[in-house]
Design a protein around this nucleic acid. Structure first.
Length: 529
DNA sequence: CTAGGGTTAG
């Protein structure tokens, strides 16, 4: 070992003067040593000085170093300069690109790889499958499966598990089961992916069957089942399963708590969180905190929210940008706009999301002018507003009755490269209709590039109730009836929104409609937040 | 020299 080190020092001194041709094995080891110690720059220097005599594996090591640090531009640059590429070079690039979700490049490179005549191996398909997973890629998944069969790769666990994901994304149950059968030696991961597939396709019983049949399980197996139950809205089964888990970690707790949040059982979520904290079994992570803050926000649990805030501070997580943003939202939604703004001001680094929750909070409190000011500041500070920013801004104008200002901002959205979507139109309809400009609101609806949705009719209906405009209200009510299949949860929100304003006429009207259309509170996904 | 599966904000 000593000898190796001294020879390394010796070599380092001479390499820069290019006196010796260093054996590639030694060079590779040296570069690896640098990389292990975090000396990327030194590694790159050594690398550059010996470019001509490097072998493929050293090039690959260099690519990997950049990929692991998320520096895809640099990785790509090295990759492009390689005199010879092997399958590892391609795989390493694919894996890096997968993390950045650059599916375009993955696809392009994969085709290029095929053209170059190199044969994919058992790690290639796992690395590229995400790029073709999604609607619109049916043929591609089938082609890749065919290719895998032709190369004998579908027998492999790695490739097989990847193909399972591919078929899951196609919502193809038969394909899923066929691929699983093809795998020669199934391991825990492949079983887990199978269960995940069953659960995602809604075949809970098949998932349960697989769970009981599999030879061994790990904690991820349990989590896959848990998440499966939750996403299939089987909350009782989920909780039962959670209680029976032989081992639990922060992840398990967080998933269960988040499950309750998703199914809008905020109080239960908070109870479970309390249980978690009091049992001292696992410390909440920032995932846990952000989920819990959402529950606080949704249920206006200010006291609990404050407690969570102090826990976050004690853990030294106060500067976490996600948590701060959740805190702002929580305070704003539970009525303490001062605390929200305090958190916001104390943030050393902000991002568009944090500005959005601040502006949204001001809007919620009817502080339209302040919201506008904050928006100006956001732009001045160089942050790029997005769709959500404008939803918040327009709703701020609507709540504060700033009609002209709202119309102006609506027109100016394009300057930031944002095209008006349904939500923006909904805000504008709300804005105009509340102000009594019902004709203008109706004209806006008729001129929209898409069919009016639930929210838009709801905004119009609410205002019609407010201004006792029966004729147009009838139109809106009919519009809603046609759309009753969509977003049953939206009724709820509408009731709340109009209830807050003391606008009881429209609330009654909506309640009546709810009964009439038998709306169920089953849609757990949020539609505006 | 690569390594497939599970959770977070507006």
């Amino acid at each position: 070992m000593r000898r190796l080190e001294s020879s390394a020092t010796f070599l380092r001194g001479h390499i820069s003067r290019r006196i010796f041709t260093v054996p590639t094995a030694t060079l590779n080891r040296l570069i690896n040593d640098h990389l292990r110690d975090g000396g990327l720059v030194e590694a790159r220097m050594l690398f550059n000085q010996n470019r001509t005599s490097l072998d493929v594996s050293t090039w690959n090591t260099m690519i990997l170093a950049y990929v692991q640090r998320g520096l895809m531009l640099e990785a790509h640059q090295v990759f492009d300069q390689m005199p010879v590429r092997d399958v590892v070079s391609w795989n390493t690039m694919f894996m890096g690109l997968k993390k950045t979700k650059d599916t375009e490049t993955v696809l392009r490179l994969f085709i290029e790889m095929r053209r170059s005549g190199l044969i994919p191996d058992e790690l290639t398909i796992p690395a590229i499958i995400d790029a073709v997973s999604g609607p619109g890629f049916k043929v591609l998944v089938l082609q890749i499966h065919t290719l895998a069969i032709r190369l004998g790769l579908s027998l492999n666990v790695y490739t097989g598990s990847a193909l399972l994901r591919g078929y899951t994304s196609l919502r193809d149950l038969r394909g899923l089961e066929r691929v699983f059968e093809e795998i020669l030696l199934k391991d825990v991961v492949s079983w887990n992916v199978l269960i995940m597939g069953y659960m995602k396709l809604g075949f809970v019983e098949d998932g349960e069957r697989a769970f009981s049949e599999m030879p061994e399980r790990n904690i991820i197996t349990w989590h896959t089942m848990l998440i499966g139950y939750i996403n299939n809205m089987e909350m009782d089964k989920a909780r039962d399963f959670f209680d029976k888990m032989s081992q639990r970690n922060v992840f398990s707790w967080t998933v269960m708590i988040n499950g309750y949040v998703q199914s809008r059982e905020y109080k239960v979520a908070l109870l479970l969180f309390r249980e978690m904290v009091e049992s001292w079994s696992n410390r909440p992570s920032h995932y846990t905190f952000s989920t819990v803050l959402k529950a606080c926000a949704a249920s206006s649990s200010l006291l609990m929210g404050r407690q969570v805030h102090s826990m976050i501070t004690k853990r030294g997580m106060a500067c976490d940008i996600v948590l701060s943003t959740s805190l702002i939202d929580m305070y704003a939604k539970s009525g303490d706009i001062t605390a929200a703004s305090h958190v916001f001001k104390s943030m050393p680094v902000k991002n568009p999301a944090s500005w959005n929750s601040m502006i949204g909070g001001l809007a919620r409190h009817g502080l339209g002018v302040e919201a506008l000011k904050e928006f100006e500041r956001m732009v001045q500070c160089g942050y790029k507003p997005d769709q959500v920013t404008f939803i918040n801004l327009l709703s701020a104008c609507a709540h504060a009755g700033l009609v002209e200002e709202g119309e102006k901002q609506f027109m100016l959205m394009g300057r930031f490269g944002i095209t008006a979507e349904k939500e923006h139109y909904a805000c504008m309809v709300d804005l105009l209709a509340r102000a009594g400009q019902l004709d203008k609101a109706e004209r806006l609806i008729n001129g929209m590039p898409f069919a009016p949705d639930f929210v838009i009719w709801g905004a119009l209906l609410g205002a019609c109730g407010l201004h006792s405009c029966l004729e147009l209200g009838e139109v809106a009510a009919k519009g809603i009836s046609r759309l009753r299949r969509e977003h049953p949860a939206a009724y709820d929100v509408l009731c709340r929104v109009h209830g807050e304003k003391g606008d009881w006429t429209s609330v009654m009207e909506l309640r009546r409609l709810m009964r009439k259309t038998k709306a169920k509170k089953q849609d757990a996904s949020s539609w505006i937040e």
